[in-house]
Amino acid sequence: MKPPKFSYHRPGNYAEALDLLDQYGEDAKIMSGGQSLIPILNMRLSTPKHIIDLSRIDDLKGIRQEGNMIVIGGMTRHVEVENSDLIKKKCPLLFEAIRWVGHTQIRNRGTVGGSIAHADPSAELPCVLTALRGEIVIVSKEEEITVSPEEFFLSFLLTSLEPDQLIKEVRFPIIHESCGYAFEEVARRHGDFALVEAAAVIDVDETGRISEALIALGGANAVPFIPEEVERFLIGKKPDETILKEAAVMQLDDLDPEGDIHGSGEYRRHLSGILLEKALCRAADRAMEGVEI
């Protein structure tokens, strides 16, 4: 199994990368960590004429706080997110989810921008970014734009990214310290792609009623799914087990998971309800800590 022939470019800075994309666009493919692209090349599912390797562009790396956002450079590796105190403190949902991404060997190479751009429907980062209503900053030679996950993820492995664009950074909103959060996933083996996954953030007011609910399900549809009816239903309710159980299955009919050797579509739909219930319960428990009623 060998990749097809291609010309290799390794721009040393940002401007050079955008020039190369402008020049080769349609015929080029960006290489970030390569943990999805190299298998694709090895199996010759794609045969780009040019590979543009972004690994030496330091401007695209790093994690920082900017106002109420945690900003992660597109070429920041998963392992750096996993080891970041800032992420642990300010973006605990992402911190909890990142350990579900592949194995250590994958997280040592794979990047945040790469995972977002690859847009696998069961990947963890797109699901977390969608739940938190994050932003994706995209650049080309002409412009820099910011898009929402809903605008960005179009379908299975398909995004709105144009051939001359690259992901500069991904922005995760910081949730209030009083919020509870949880990420739940079932995979056949640890490190495998998820069958289904659920991300939830819940905040409660001083009377113990839910004041905010942010939810996303991954792996169930072609793109991460926000069950908006469930989010609306939860507002103003006390997060007891009956309510959360009822909420978790409200929108299962809006899911259309595909079946494969690892599980039928019906099983994935069922699992979505179970995982969402678990995520809601754990997030609510965390939110209720410190609330005196």
Binding site: Y8, R10, G34, I38, P39, M43, D53, T104, N108
Partner: peptide, 25 residues
């Protein structure tokens, strides 16, 4: 294609799968 882990090596001290990396990288 990055499933079995038999080709694991260390790059700058970190474990990586050598079948998921180009030599030029």
């Amino acid at each position: 294609h990055g499933v079995c882990g038999a080709c694991t090596i260390l790059v700058n001290g970190e474990s990586v799968r050598s079948c998921l990396m180009l030599a030029v990288q």
